[in-house]
């Protein structure tokens, strides 16, 4: 699982929020989307949905603003993790993350974030339209280029 990340294709997302359900069940044992580590942003009027996941930034601002070092970079696995035993629930990381990712768990009273389910992300397993995939970070650009090329090909196809 070294170097793998979650890749989101918003065009495939149907907004079913199944990922939120399975994530909360996996992490907290209950089906409660407010405890999920993935959230769907919705543009209802245009039918667009964007699953928001942690980007595991190279220089994360959430680790910079965290007063307790609970939010830190796991250098071995190259990902940002939150230690729930050190988190005080000050919500500074939530305010600081530009991707709006860490979420406040209203039951545990600490901030939680995506940890890739120990290398087997449940959201990927249960996403029927395959809007979320777990791929090598190096392949993300290849995936994006493939999508762009497909779109251009569709556009150029005669009689579309």
């Amino acid at each position: 699982m070294h170097g793998k990340v979650l890749f989101v294709d918003p065009e495939k997302c149907t907004g079913c929020r199944n990922c939120e359900m399975v994530c909360s069940v996996f992490h907290s044992g209950v089906s409660n989307p407010t405890r999920s580590r993935i959230r769907i942003l919705k543009w209802e009027e245009v039918g667009l949905y964007l699953p928001m996941v942690c980007q595991h930034c190279e220089t994360p601002i959430c680790t910079e603003v965290c007063p307790t070092k609970a939010c830190h970079k796991d250098l071995e696995n190259r990902r940002v993790v939150i230690d729930p035993k050190k988190c005080i629930g000050c919500k500074t990381c939530i305010m600081a993350c530009p991707f709006g990712h860490p979420f406040f768990d209203p039951i545990d009273r600490v901030t939680c974030k995506c940890d890739y389910c120990d290398g087997n992300p449940q959201c990927v397993l249960f996403c029927n339209p395959k809007a979320v995939s777990y791929i090598d970070a190096d392949l993300i650009n290849v995936e994006r280029k493939r999508e762009a090329a497909k779109r251009i090909a569709d556009f150029l196809r005669p009689g579309r």
């Binding site: 680790t63 910079e64 965290c66 307790t68 500074t92 600490v110």
Partner: peptide, 25 residues
């Protein structure tokens, strides 16, 4: 009072190197 887990408030000073919450504390 605003913290999720209030009894851990002393942890709030552990990262003054980069965090303004810790510096403020």
């Amino acid at each position: 009072l605003d913290l999720g887990i209030k009894r851990r408030f002393l942890y709030a000073c552990l990262n003054p190197k980069t965090s303004w919450v810790a510096r403020g504390f």
